[in-house]
Design a protein around this nucleic acid. Sequence first.
DNA 1: TTTTGAAAGTGGTCTGACCACTAATCTTTC
DNA 2: GAAAGATTAGTGGTCAGACCACTTTCAAAA
Lengths: 213, 213
Amino acid sequence: MSQPKRYLNIVSEMRDMIREQNIRPGDRIPSERELAEKLAVGRSTIREALRSLELLGLIETRRGEGTFLTDPRKHRLVELLATFILQDNKTLEDVWETMCIHETAAIQVICASDASKLPVWESLRERLDGHEFIREDFVRELMVLSGNRLSLKIWFLLKQYGGNPYDGEVMPEERPLLKNILQAIEQQDAETAIRDFKAWSSVLIKGENAQWQ
Amino acid sequence: MSQPKRYLNIVSEMRDMIREQNIRPGDRIPSERELAEKLAVGRSTIREALRSLELLGLIETRRGEGTFLTDPRKHRLVELLATFILQDNKTLEDVWETMCIHETAAIQVICASDASKLPVWESLRERLDGHEFIREDFVRELMVLSGNRLSLKIWFLLKQYGGNPYDGEVMPEERPLLKNILQAIEQQDAETAIRDFKAWSSVLIKGENAQWQ
DNA sequence: TTTTGAAAGTGGTCTGACCACTAATCTTTC
DNA sequence: GAAAGATTAGTGGTCAGACCACTTTCAAAA
C-alpha cells in the first residue's frame, strides 16, 4: 500500500484525542463536522472511521445529539472475542478448566496479598448465612478482589459462553465448604483454600450437586 | 432509534450475499458502485459498511483492484480493541499477569499428566543447546502440551496484545534455568518447575535481561 | 512478436446538499 | 411571571457528483 488509509489514521488520532482531552465514557466527542475541520479531512472520511468504531461498540451515535464514548464495560469485547476465541467446537471441559485456571490464580493472588485481611470476608460469611445467596456472587467476589481486571473479563466471557456452573443459590450443605475456603484465605493458606475450592467447584461442574438443587 | 441504521443493514445484507453466492476467502466481492446500485443505496453508505468490515479484518480492499474476502484466521479485532482497552500501564501488567496465570497452569497440568514423560523434553533440551532458539518457542511448547486449546488461544491473544515478553533468542546465561525447568517437569515436580519458570519470566518482563540482550 | 500507452474499472477522498431528529432558545399566551 | 408552544441552530444519516491514484486490460505501434 503506497499510501496508508486515511481513515485508519483518523482512528488513531481520535484515540489520542480521547486520551489527551481526557474524554470519559458517556462524554460527547466533537461533532463530525468539527472533527473534519480539525483533522483537515472530509466529513465522509471521518464518518468511515466513526462507523468502524461504532461497530466495535467503542462509540455510540445518536442522531440530533451527537457521538458519545461508550462505557468500556459495554464494549463488545466479549461478544466479538467470543466469535474469535470460541469459533471452533470447543469442548466445554476446556472452558471450565480455563475458568478454573483463573479462579485458582485469583485465590493464590488474594492469599499472597493484603486483600486477605479485608473485612469483606467477614461480610461474605454473614451473607452466606442469609438466604438467596447466589453461588456466582461468591466466585465473582474472588475474581474482583484479585485485582486483575483482564482476568476478570476473561472469566466473565467464559462463564457467559460455557454455561454458568455457578448458577443457583448456595444450598445449606455447601456452606461449610465455602466457610472453610474463607477461613483459609484469611489465614493466607492458599493451598487449603484452592483445594477446598476445587472440591466445591468440581461437584458443581460434574453436576453431582443434584442433591443440592 | 426510530429508523434503524442503514449501514448495519448493509452489513447483514452483504453477509447474506456472501453466503448465497458462495463467495470464499480470497474471492472478489462486487465493486462499491455495483453494490450501491444493487442494494439501492448511496455509495458512501456502502463504504461505511465496508470500512467497518475492513477494520474488523473481514474484508481487504486494494485500490484499483477491488474488495476481497479475507481468510477468517487473519481477523484483526484483537489488535484494535487492544489499542483502546489496554491503554494504561495497569492493564499491561494485567496482561502479563494473566499470561503467567495460563503458563503456570499449563506447567501444573503437564506435571500431573503423562505429558511429563514424553520424549519432547529431551528434544527440547537439545534444541536449547543449538543456536537461534527462540524464547517464545519454549513457552509455546508448554502451552501446547498442556492440551487446553482454549487456554492456548487466550495465551496467543494476550501475547499479541501485550507485547511479547518472550521476544528474542535464548541467551547462554538463561540455559541453566530453562534446563532446570525441564528437569523438574520430567520429575513431575510442579512446584520447582513453576518457581524456576517464574524466576525466568519475571526477569524478562521486568526488562532486567538487558544483560542478556 | 514485443512493447507501449490509452482506456476502463476500482477504491480513496472531498464537496455540497438535503433529510430527520434533538435540544436550546425565543415567542406567545395565560 | 409562568407555562405552553413555535422557532432555530446543531447533530447525525444519506445521497449525488466529482476528482484522484492505482491496477488491469487490450489494442495500437514498434
